Simulated scan of single mutants.
Amino acid sequence: MRVLFVKQDHASPGGLVGDAFAGLGYDVSEFTVVPRERYHSPAVTVEFPDPAGYDAIVAFGAVWAVYDDAAIGTWVHDEIAFTRAALGLGVPVLGICFGGQLLAAAAGGAVTRAPAPEIGWNVIETAGTGLIDPGPWFQWHSDRFTVPADVPVLARTALANQAFVCGRALGLQFHPEVTDEVLQCWLDGGGSAGLAAAGVDADALLAQTRRLQGAAAGRARELVRRFVRDVAAAPVGAVPVA
């Protein structure tokens, strides 16, 4: 089984999600959208691979906004088209944060600025379907997605939708992949300044992540297992949970 990890940039380790797919026997391939040398000028030209060549696709997060064409150029529309093609082919897709927002856009939804950022480990309200646990899950985002009325929202907070299912795809607003190493990678990539601007203590957040990541690893493994069992294996065109 082949899974493609679509990394929007060089600073997006697979973390707990990567470990979970490897533990289920998947052969992991990676595709980086914005190379390291273009991280600060990300309006690059990208040719996405054929989604039909994979048994699943995981789209990871990014520091950019889905709707910020002025900053990132046209590749975001190409990635939405790539994701829409995967949906049409019945290739299972797991979208994480920016990736979840891309998935929402591909499914006919929208992405907008949230009333306030959500940063840190938060418990979310779930629909009780058994697919998404309440957490706590790690969040770091300033945008949010909406989905069409016929697409089930499985989890939310007061500020944003947190999970939805569309056929063989699962979109998440939170980050199930996060460990202290993943978070440190984000901080080293410029995230420390963003946390400071938001009034968040980076050292305290790292320390909290180290305390919580053991239990988070179990939740991440179970989330990926449920994605493979309940979402990826659903009949093409079906909504597996309501």
Score class of each variant (00 low, 15 high):
residue 210 R to P: 14
residue 216 A to V: 09
residue 218 G to Y: 02
residue 170 L to R: 00
residue 72 I to C: 05
residue 167 G to Q: 02
residue 162 Q to G: 04
residue 89 L to D: 07
residue 43 A to S: 10
residue 43 A to E: 06
residue 206 L to S: 10
residue 17 V to Y: 00
residue 69 D to V: 09
residue 90 G to E: 02
residue 187 L to E: 05
residue 18 G to C: 06
residue 43 A to I: 01
residue 170 L to K: 04
residue 93 V to A: 09
residue 127 A to G: 06
residue 123 V to G: 06
residue 66 V to Y: 01
residue 149 A to Q: 11
residue 72 I to L: 09
residue 110 A to Y: 03
residue 43 A to N: 08
residue 181 E to S: 14
residue 127 A to M: 08
residue 231 V to W: 07
residue 45 T to M: 13
residue 36 R to V: 07
residue 220 A to C: 12
residue 55 D to Q: 12
residue 128 G to W: 06
residue 100 G to Y: 03
residue 23 G to C: 12
residue 216 A to W: 05
residue 9 D to K: 02
residue 36 R to E: 13
residue 25 G to Q: 08
residue 82 F to T: 08
residue 102 L to P: 00
residue 7 K to H: 14
residue 189 G to H: 04
residue 185 C to L: 13
residue 131 L to S: 03
residue 8 Q to G: 03
residue 204 A to D: 11
residue 30 E to D: 15
residue 3 V to R: 10
residue 116 A to Y: 11
residue 232 A to S: 08
residue 140 W to E: 03
residue 193 A to T: 11
residue 27 D to K: 13
residue 32 T to N: 07
residue 95 G to Q: 03
residue 113 R to Q: 15
residue 235 P to R: 05
residue 33 V to K: 00
residue 96 I to W: 00
residue 32 T to S: 09
residue 49 P to R: 10
residue 206 L to C: 13
residue 185 C to V: 14
residue 234 A to T: 01
residue 202 A to S: 15
residue 41 S to E: 15
residue 208 Q to T: 14
residue 182 V to F: 00
residue 19 D to V: 11
residue 146 T to S: 15
residue 78 D to C: 01
residue 202 A to M: 06
residue 8 Q to L: 13
residue 178 V to I: 13
residue 131 L to K: 11
residue 185 C to F: 03
residue 152 P to V: 01
residue 146 T to F: 04
residue 240 P to V: 03
residue 125 E to H: 14
residue 40 H to D: 15
residue 115 P to R: 12
residue 113 R to P: 10
residue 44 V to G: 04
residue 58 V to R: 09
residue 95 G to P: 09
residue 55 D to T: 10
residue 211 R to S: 15
residue 47 E to C: 11
residue 115 P to M: 12
residue 175 H to G: 11
residue 60 F to C: 04
residue 149 A to W: 09
residue 11 A to F: 06
residue 7 K to P: 02
residue 169 A to F: 06
residue 50 D to E: 13
residue 169 A to I: 05
residue 115 P to L: 02
residue 109 G to E: 03
residue 227 F to P: 01
residue 233 A to K: 12
residue 183 L to H: 10
residue 212 L to I: 15
residue 172 L to N: 02
residue 32 T to Y: 09
residue 135 G to T: 02
residue 217 A to V: 15
residue 55 D to F: 07
residue 242 A to K: 14
residue 221 R to L: 12
residue 160 A to F: 03
residue 225 R to M: 08
residue 221 R to S: 12
residue 185 C to E: 15
residue 107 A to Y: 00
residue 13 P to R: 01
residue 6 V to F: 09
residue 110 A to Q: 10
residue 134 P to G: 01
residue 187 L to H: 07
residue 228 V to A: 13
residue 238 A to C: 05
residue 195 L to F: 05
residue 174 F to A: 00
residue 84 R to S: 13
residue 130 G to A: 09
residue 196 A to M: 10
residue 11 A to R: 06
residue 239 V to A: 07
residue 140 W to N: 01
residue 129 T to N: 14
residue 123 V to T: 14
residue 213 Q to R: 08
residue 34 V to R: 01
residue 190 G to Y: 09
residue 208 Q to A: 14
residue 163 A to W: 00
residue 72 I to E: 07
residue 53 G to S: 12
residue 38 R to K: 13
residue 52 A to W: 08
residue 171 G to I: 02
residue 146 T to D: 15
residue 149 A to F: 11
residue 210 R to S: 13
residue 240 P to Y: 07
residue 36 R to N: 11
residue 176 P to R: 03
residue 86 A to L: 07
